[in-house]
Amino acid sequence: MADNGEAVRTNHLTKVYKDFWGRPKVTALDDLNLTIHRGEVFGLLGPNGSGKSTTIKLLLNLIFPTSGDISVLGYRPDSRLMKEKIGFLPEESYLHRFLNGEETLEFYGKMFRLDRRTLKRRVPELLDIVGLDAKARKRKLREYSKGMARRIGLAQALINNPELILLDEPTTGLDPLGTKEMKDLILSLKQQGKTVLLCSHLLADVQDVCDRITILFRGKMQTLGEVRDLLQVRDIAQIQARGLTAAQLEEVRQFIAKMGAQDATITHPTTTLEDLFVRVVLQKTGENIGAGGVGYAGASGDNAARS
């Protein structure tokens, strides 16, 4: 199929779940028309039961549409070529519990027919990127914590260096540090020109990394657009400055009020709780995120870029 800059396109996509006798039971997705551009981070938002997971399952051919068309990277969802180019991190890390970390990645690598030499290089590289240490690599997945399971799940999604990555609730189960690392990685992937489809109900995460979002409710698309545009309050202006005394600030406030501004206030900005947590933990451990090889950012991000 021709590449027209679209990573995902759906036309009138509808999914109706039926009962044993074939009678319609639930309309999980109703006439979804969606386009995701190559190279963007796209957020799929909505409350539980809104159709987010159904959309992802349809894109991955895990379920079949009742009506409508789907195109992923220009291919039909049952195309093997499409699967060669995507990576998928499911909501929970649904992996073989009796394999260890390395065996898991080797298995998924073989699904892409990666040769032995490539696997030997790629597997430790990915384990480094997601921050699983040597001890964890040899442990069986059933012994992994939830955070470790998310990390190995992410590693298997990246094993083929995909063009499109579908992340279903990627930060679920991660601590704030892990959440930050995950978001850094998503941004890193975007820098590499990859497309990321993010499905989450943790709105702060989505806001931090997504270029565009859509909100689904009861199977229907409610809104679609760039995050900045959607969140911007156009009739309120904000001025930021560093190094002013309290007297100087009062002068500025009076100056703005003279110019006719209503409800002019001056406050000090607050950081996010996540930023505070990361700063405290890193100061305490004295570790450097980039150099220590425990996170996604910095050198690890570079690794991802190289790979």
Binding site: L60, N61, L62, R80, L81, K83, E84, I86, F88, P90, E92, Y94, L95, H96, Y108, M111, F112, G153, Q156
Partner: peptide, 14 residues
Amino acid sequence: ENRVIYTVVTKPTT
């Protein structure tokens, strides 16, 4: 049932 099949069928295997 435990969705392990998700990560297998989404790979280029038939």
